[in-house]
């Protein structure tokens, strides 16, 4: 009959989708565990932060393995990264968030897009993180800051607000230069503005 030829093709595409979904779900479980561990920073003390960061780092290796599995699947379907991108987009933004946040907690600087990929041991030319996913992950880092600053001050670190305000201020200026076509990203960027304002108000409270 008609169409006999590509029933196979459609079903193969469905099968690839299922295969990717299975790995993505494992990644989702992993990143959720890491996010739970990261919550520990909001206890606010230096020890709590150090311990949370250490716990997140423990999960990094499994996350790399799963990313490598995704990369291996996509290697068999060259040129189809963006065909299936919607499936792993969410976990990739979580990856970027986690890696960038932990790095900021340790060094106070922002990981670049390339650094996030190399931290996850991904080779961009084979299977990387989409630039917009990285930027969304960075916005998530910003979204966590007001809460972090409030809890640090409560725990007695009165220098934290100035440090974070300066970081977010640079980040905000950097984002403003981008011509954001993606509506979702633009919305997240609006949130960044609010985060900055909130952190500046904590800074103001501390000074007064």
């Amino acid at each position: 009959t008609l169409f006999e030829g590509f029933r196979g093709e459609l079903e193969a595409s469905n099968a690839v989708r299922e295969e990717i979904k299975a790995v993505s779900q494992s990644m989702d479980a992993e990143t959720r565990k890491m996010q739970a561990a990261l919550m520990g920073i909001h206890a606010g003390t230096d020890e709590a932060v150090a311990s949370a960061v250490a716990k997140v780092r423990e999960h990094l290796e499994p996350l790399r393995t799963l990313n490598a599995q995704l990369a291996a699947i996509m290697k068999q379907h060259p040129g189809q990264y963006y065909r299936y991108h919607d499936i792993w987009r969410h976990v990739h933004t979580s990856c970027a968030f986690l890696v960038a946040f932990v790095h900021w907690l340790e060094h106070g600087t922002l990981l670049t897009h390339a650094q996030v990929e190399s931290e996850l041991q991904l080779r961009h030319e084979e299977f990387g993180i989409d630039l917009e996913d990285y930027l969304v992950g960075v916005c998530s880092v910003s979204n966590e800051m007001p809460r972090y600053v409030v809890n640090r001050v409560t725990a007695g670190d009165y220098d934290c607000p100035a440090k974070v305000a300066s970081f977010l201020s640079d980040l905000y200026a950097a984002f403003r230069l981008l011509n954001l076509r993606n509506d979702f990203l633009r919305k997240r960027f609006d949130g960044l503005k609010y985060d900055l304002k909130r952190v500046e108000e904590v800074l103001y409270d501390v000074k007064i």
Partner: peptide, 8 residues
């Protein structure tokens, strides 16, 4: 809140 993150 942390606990809910690891609930399947």
């Amino acid at each position: 809140y942390e606990g809910f993150h690891v609930v399947p």
